[in-house]
Amino acid sequence: MAAPPLSVKGLSVAYQKKPVLRNVSFNVTEGELIGVIGPNGAGKSTLMKAALGLIPSIAGEVLVYGKPYKQQRKLIGYVPQRESVDWDFPTNALDVVLMGRYGHLGWFRRPGAKEKALAMECLAKVGMADFAGRQISQLSGGQQQRVFLARALAQDAKLYFMDEPFAGVDAATEKAIITLLQELKKQGKTVIVVHHDLATVQDYFDSVLLLNVELQAYGPTAETFTQERLQQTYGGRLAFLDRSHQPSSPAGKEG
């Protein structure tokens, strides 16, 4: 059997004394859309950053297609949280998307016509072709998110990490993102998404990973995304209706 796109073994991360991620292990199946779910402070973003090698881990191993992450950078695309950058930076949408090609360009080479054409294509895929020359601070939050997605597309990766792409975007952008995710899936790519909105999990993802410092559950959405597991993950503080499994749950639809 070929090596899985992402294999995490015993990953642990601590910022201060208390670990924010303890002994997390899982293997990702190729060609799936995977939602990472958990309460605030559960370590969802941390898991992603540690897997990408952006922050140091205190223990554990991350393999991408069977090899250490550092040898496989070109196979990985990354969409950081939109708030992580200053959008008043002097650059336009096309330029940001071009940054997705930097990893493929030589150290001193500038992006040329070929890269620009590809970047335009990626912008078109997220419905942003008309905004290529727009200064990025003049884009709406949803449009900025789509520019980030286009940049990840330009990376032409096989495994994608997206940190809350749905956070604070309008309906049009949400639809654009989900169409794109489906498209990526069709091309056989694997996408791991940190996600907050429990109501849409069942519609969007093939598998879910429930996380609260430790791995709570991981598997196909239908079997894993259950009331019981969610209560366990969110520490019983959740009043949430699992639509498909317990339609008459006493937990109620409120909250």
């Binding site: 952006l54 990354y78 950081p80 930076f89 940054m99 930097y102 940049r151």
Partner: peptide
């Protein structure tokens, strides 16, 4: 200058 996290990500 724009996105150090992304820069680290691409190596």
């Amino acid at each position: 200058s724009f996105d150090a996290g992304f820069a680290r990500g691409i190596g």
